[in-house]
Each structure stands twice: as structure tokens, then as C-alpha cells.
Design a protein around this nucleic acid. Structure first.
Lengths: 145, 145
DNA sequence: CTCCTAGAGTTGATGCTGCAACTTAAGAGT
DNA sequence: ACTCTTAAGTTGCAGCATCAACTCTAGGAG
């Protein structure tokens, strides 16, 4: 790691952090949900049958199930979704959006898209999009795991 | 936001998250410090007089002072640094690294640099470095604030 | 049928982050 | 000297992420 490498890394991390912070804050202010909650809502919204299991959600998002469970608890308390008991006690089979959750995500997708476009996409040149896109694919593709 | 835009954004965020997660975990396992602690330590290490104030630290890192204060509390408890009382009670003037803190950061800079190189830099093509570098500068330069 | 293992889901602990409120010190103005 | 304002620093709260431990179910081996 040369000094230039460190400077590059530092600059990148700062930019990333700043971008996430701004996008998060906008999502919070405009729709009163966090980026994680947004992810859950969007994934559930796109679910074929309208219901998903915790593990499916976690795998689809690439998150840990513990994290998903915690989020579901908070979101259920806020009335965005329901965990349906199936079979015996303690065994939940399906997570479904409530009308409130569905309405919220539908609005958020539109509004938040505009924010992302304004804060991020509009500031990216086409070749930058290309480069970042290629890197993203390489990174998520099989990243040394 | 077209579908392609959303796919780009989603892919980017996933890649970013994954990268940070891996880098963080490595830093935690190898040196038992978080990325934030690393930032504090490096900044303090580079301080001219060897001492900095909370606000200087916060501005230098681009963080909020509350965050810095919380981190300092934990790091002081772990013996990495000291907050020196100056003047009357409750008024702290200088934050200085302890020998333990200095030793830790010196080792971490080297070892962590290798991790970053391996996990990130080695996977970046030159044009990707260029694009990200340009974006980072644009983003941190004056990003709509 | 019984046991036992594997997986799903939850929960608790701990540390991190953002925000807001609070305390105290320093300085300006009169 | 006294007050008022401002800045520095701390603290508490709530949400978020990670990890590990735990419960319960289901399904198979014997």
C-alpha cells in the first residue's frame, strides 16, 4: 500500500460513507423507513405468492437471518407486515405485507428512486457507471468466499 | 429510475456492503479493532503534536463529534488512548495515544494494508480505479451540501 | 416407535451510528 | 464584574449489525 493507494482508499470510503448517509437520511425523512426496511419491503413486494419465509428473505438479500428476524420484529410492531403462525406454536411460515406496508413501499420506490437519481446517478458519467458496474459484478460474483 | 438503474444500484450496494464486511471482519480478526477505531488511531498517529481535540478529530475524519466521543470512551477503556484533563474539571483538551495504541496502529496499518490490497485493489482494473477515484472526488468535493 | 440430527426461526449481548439534549467553559459586549 | 451567547464535549436513546446461543420442528435411521 503506497501513499497513493491509501489516499485512494480513504477517499473512496469517505465518498461511500457520505453517499450512504445522504441516501439514508432522505429515505428516513421522506418515508420514515431505513434502507434495510426498504430492502425487506421491496423484496416482499416482489414475492410471487405474496409470502416469503425468513430464510428466503435472507438469501434473497444476502443478509444473515438474525438480522432479518430483528428487522421483522420491528417492522411487524410498526404494522408493515405480518408473521403468520402456521402449524404448531412458534412455527412461522409466511411473512406477508400489510396494506400499510404495501402502500408505503409503493410510494417509497418512486420517491426514493428520484433521490438516488439526483444524488448519485446524475453525477455519474457513463464510463463511471460501466466501471462500477463491472466491479460490482466481480465483487459479488464470487468474491473469495 | 429504470429497471436497469435499479439493478445497477442494487448490485453496487451489495458489492459495497460485501467489501466493507470483509474488510471489517479482517481488521477485527487480525487486530481486534473496528474500522472506526482504526480511523481514530491513524488520525491520532499522524497528529503533529501527538495530541488532538475531539473537534479536530471529528473534522479531520468528517464524522460527528458525538460519534467520536463514544468511540473515545470505548477506546480509552481499552487502553488505546488517554483524554487529558486540562484546566478545570470536565474540560478535556488533548487526546493522546498510549504506547499500546501506538503499537497497535503501527501493526494494523501494515497488516490491514495488505488485506485491502488483496481484497480490493488487486481486483480493480486501472480504469476502474480511475472511475472510482473521480467519483470519490466529485462526491466528497462538494456533494450538494 | 424412539431417538437424533439438521434446519428454521428467535433472542440476547455487544458494539456502532445518528440525533438531540445537556453541561460546562470561554469570550464578547455592556 | 456581570450576563449572554457560543462552542466543546459528554451523555442517553433508539435503531442497526453481527455473533452466538437457544427453542422448536421435521424428518430420517435404527
Amino acid at each position: 500500500m503506497s501513499d497513493a493507494d491509501w489516499a485512494f482508499w480513504d477517499s473512496w470510503m469517505r465518498a461511500q460513507r457520505r453517499m450512504e448517509r445522504e441516501v439514508d437520511r432522505a429515505l428516513q425523512q421522506d418515508f420514515d423507513i431505513s434502507k434495510s426496511e426498504f430492502g425487506i419491503l421491496v423484496t416482499l413486494r416482489a414475492a410471487p405468492g405474496g409470502a416469503m419465509r425468513v430464510t428466503e428473505l435472507a438469501e434473497s438479500l444476502g443478509w444473515e437471518k438474525g438480522r432479518v428476524a430483528h428487522l421483522l420484529t420491528r417492522m411487524e410492531a410498526r404494522g408493515f407486515l405480518e408473521r403468520e403462525e402456521a402449524g404448531a406454536a412458534g412455527r412461522r411460515t409466511g411473512i406477508t405485507l400489510t396494506a400499510v406496508g404495501a402502500e408505503r413501499v409503493d410510494r417509497a420506490v418512486l420517491g426514493h428512486g428520484r433521490v438516488i437519481r439526483r444524488l448519485v446517478l446524475d453525477r455519474l458519467a457513463p464510463d463511471q457507471v460501466q466501471a462500477i458496474s463491472a466491479w460490482s459484478r466481480a465483487m459479488t460474483g464470487d468474491g473469495s468466499e
